[in-house]
């Protein structure tokens, strides 16, 4: 059977009888949107329709699937999970997705170095495939870049059923100057492996959402992980020097 997703939608023209095919090709190059997919009567053609469903399924899978244990093992980090016991709970209880049980907190504390300049950890968030797709290139590049600048990097780990606001707990727990969560972002129909970096100076329970500096759209379809990492290194350096993050950093 033919794999209809073998080629990107942006590379295929499904429409028939196109007067100026080069013009359509140019337009398709300029946007990842599904243009030039044709129609049959008032409806989609079969293949574009199936591709819609396939992309939607991939997006849903990205949200609902689990990061495999092997993936975490290959990254060479330990794993903890938030108060949520399942993916379902993570999606329905955002408040639990940001906190940890007492013993988990103890575990993290015992397995990590204390007082790092920057504490980096990985979370599945709303997109499990993003971990495997990006971390192997993203994290080592950030780590080396920071070490070159003489910035200490804490022990990395993986958080299952993770939300961004775990940073509010992790910051004080490890007494990190800056917390950087690398977390899967909500997938769309174009990519289901994008990741964001949420960075907060002096992360703490009472901090505000606007204290986060964000770098989003990290994936091979967006900002290449290594280049995003290089940018994040400079951003972390700036945040440490200016002792602030988020909107305060922007308006500086």
């Amino acid at each position: 059977m033919k794999d209809i997703t073998e080629k990107e939608v942006s590379e295929v023209i499904y429409a028939d009888n196109i007067a100026h095919i080069e013009e359509l090709e140019k337009m398709k190059k300029a946007t990842p949107a599904r243009i030039g997919i044709g129609h049959t009567g008032a409806r989609y053609k079969t293949e574009p329709m199936l591709r819609f469903l396939a992309a939607q399924a991939a997006a849903a899978d990205a949200v609902f699937s689990e990061v495999k244990e092997d993936v975490v093992k290959d990254l060479g980090v330990f794993e903890v999970r938030t108060k949520c016991a399942s993916k379902y709970e993570m999606l329905t209880r955002p408040d639990w997705g940001r906190i940890f049980e007492e013993d988990t907190q103890e575990y993290i504390k015992n397995h990590c170095i204390q007082n790092p300049d920057v504490q980096i950890y990985f979370g599945d968030g709303l997109c499990s495939p993003s971990i495997q797709a990006n971390i192997p290139d993203l994290f080592p590049t950030i780590k080396l870049g920071l070490e070159d600048k003489g910035i200490t990097v804490g022990t990395p780990f993986f958080v299952r059923y993770c939300r961004v606001n775990t940073a509010r707990t992790i910051g004080p727990l490890l007494n990190a100057k800056v917390v950087c969560v690398l977390i899967g972002e909500r997938p769309g129909l174009l990519t289901s492996e994008s990741m964001s970096a949420y960075i907060a100076y002096h992360a703490r329970p009472e901090m505000s959402e606007s204290d986060y500096t964000v770098v989003s759209n990290i994936s091979k379809h967006g900002i290449p992980p290594v280049e995003a990492a290089a940018h994040i290194v400079d951003l972390l350096d700036e945040i440490l020097k200016k002792k602030k993050s988020g909107v305060a950093l922007k308006t500086d």
Binding site: T141, V226, A230, V233
Partner: peptide, 10 residues
């Protein structure tokens, strides 16, 4: 290609 900073740092 947009890899100047990554390569430069390396």
């Amino acid at each position: 290609a947009d890899i100047g900073k990554a390569l430069g740092q390396a």
